[in-house]
C-alpha cells in the first residue's frame, strides 16, 4: 500500500532512493570537509593570535575572518592567513620576528572585532596572553655567554616584570657575572618585541604559544614554602623540627667555610668514622 502523500509505490521508491543518494553524498562531502577542516585548522608555533583571542578551539568557532582587527591595527602587525600558509585560512595572526604587537593601550584590534573572537573583556593590554617568551637557546644568547647585550630586556614593554636580568656566577671566567634574561610568564604578554629585537640572525628568545611554553603542575602539588608563607605556620600541624645535618670539615661548604667542626656541636659526634681515623 503506498504511503499517504505518494501517488504510487514507484514514487515512494524514487523518493527513498533519491533521499538515500543525497544522504550518502552529503556524508562523503561532510567527511571530506571535516577532515580538511581539522587538518587546516592546526596552528603552527610561530603564528600568534591577536591580543584577547579566545583559546584556539573557541577562536575557530568564533572568528568570522572579517579582517576588521587587521584593518584597525595601527602597526600592520596582523594579517589574514591566505591559502598556502599553515594557519587556518582567513584567520588573523602575526609573526613576532616580522612585526610584533606594540601593545596599544586602547587595543584597537579587540575593539574592532564584531564577533567576540577577540574577547572584549580584555581592557588592560598588560593582561594579554598571546604567548610566552622563552629563552630557547642559552648557548647562543649573548647575555648567557656573559656579554652585555640586554636588548630583549630593554625593549620589553613590561620591563623588569616580564623580563628580568638575573645575576649568575660566570664559571668560565671565574670572576665575572652573567646577566641572564629570565622571563616571568605571569607578566609576559607574548607581544614578541623581545624576539623581534634579538640581535642574532636567529632569535634566541622566542615567543611560543602557551601550550608549548608552559608546563602544568599536578593539582595536588603544594610548595611547602609558599604554603608556609600563606599560613604563617608549618603546613602539617605539630610537626617536629629535627636538626639539619651539615657536612663535615673538608667539604666544599660555602655556608660554613672550613666545614662543620664536631667539637663546636657539644656532645654531638658523627655516627661513624671513615677508615683511617679521619672524621
Amino acid at each position: 500500500m503506498p504511503a499517504p502523500g505518494f501517488a504510487s509505490s514507484l514514487d515512494r521508491r524514487r523518493f527513498l532512493t533519491e533521499t538515500a543518494r543525497m544522504a550518502a553524498g552529503c556524508a562523503v562531502a561532510g567527511t571530506l570537509l571535516a577532515s580538511f577542516v581539522s587538518r587546516a585548522g592546526a596552528l603552527p608555533a610561530t603564528a600568534l593570535r591577536p591580543p584577547g583571542a579566545l583559546a584556539e578551539a573557541d577562536f575557530l568557532a568564533a572568528c568570522s575572518r572579517c579582517g576588521l582587527c587587521v584593518r584597525d591595527c595601527p602597526y600592520d602587525t596582523l594579517t589574514l592567513a591566505v591559502p598556502g600558509e599553515d594557519v587556518a585560512i582567513g584567520t588573523p595572526f602575526f609573526t613576532a620576528r616580522e612585526i610584533p604587537c606594540e601593545m596599544c593601550e586602547d587595543i584597537p584590534c579587540v575593539a574592532a572585532c564584531p564577533t567576540g573572537a577577540l574577547d572584549p573583556g580584555l581592557t588592560d593590554i598588560g593582561d594579554a596572553k598571546m604567548g610566552v617568551a622563552v629563552l630557547v637557546d642559552e648557548e647562543h644568547c649573548l647575555n648567557a655567554l656573559g656579554l652585555r647585550c640586554d636588548v630583549c630586556y630593554r625593549v620589553c614593554p613590561v620591563i623588569d616584570q616580564a623580563i628580568t636580568l638575573e645575576m649568575r656566577h660566570n664559571p668560565r671566567s671565574g670572576h665575572h657575572a652573567i646577566f641572564l634574561p629570565v622571563v616571568h610568564a605571569e607578566f609576559c604578554t607574548g607581544c614578541g618585541k623581545c624576539e623581534k629585537s634579538c640581535v642574532l640572525p636567529e632569535a634566541t628568545i622566542k615567543v611560543l604559544p602557551l601550550h608549548l611554553a608552559r608546563g602544568v603542575a599536578s593539582d595536588h602539588y603544594r610548595l611547602g614554602w609558599e604554603e608556609m608563607q600563606d599560613k604563617g605556620a608549618p603546613v602539617v600541624e605539630g610537626i617536629v623540627d629535627l636538626p639539619d645535618r651539615l657536612p663535615g670539615p673538608g667539604t666544599d661548604n660555602l655556608a660554613t667555610p672550613g666545614g662543620f667542626a664536631p667539637e663546636g656541636a657539644g656532645d654531638f659526634a658523627p655516627a661513624f668514622k671513615l677508615p683511617g681515623g679521619k672524621p
Binding site: G30, L33, V37, G41, L60, A88
Partner: peptide
C-alpha cells in the same frame, strides 16, 4: 551538511573552502 560539520568540528567550517 555544512552546519553539521561546523557543529562536529567546532569551527566555521565552510569558511575553510
Amino acid at each position: 551538511t555544512v552546519l553539521a560539520v561546523s557543529a562536529a568540528t567546532g569551527t566555521v567550517a565552510w569558511e575553510f573552502v
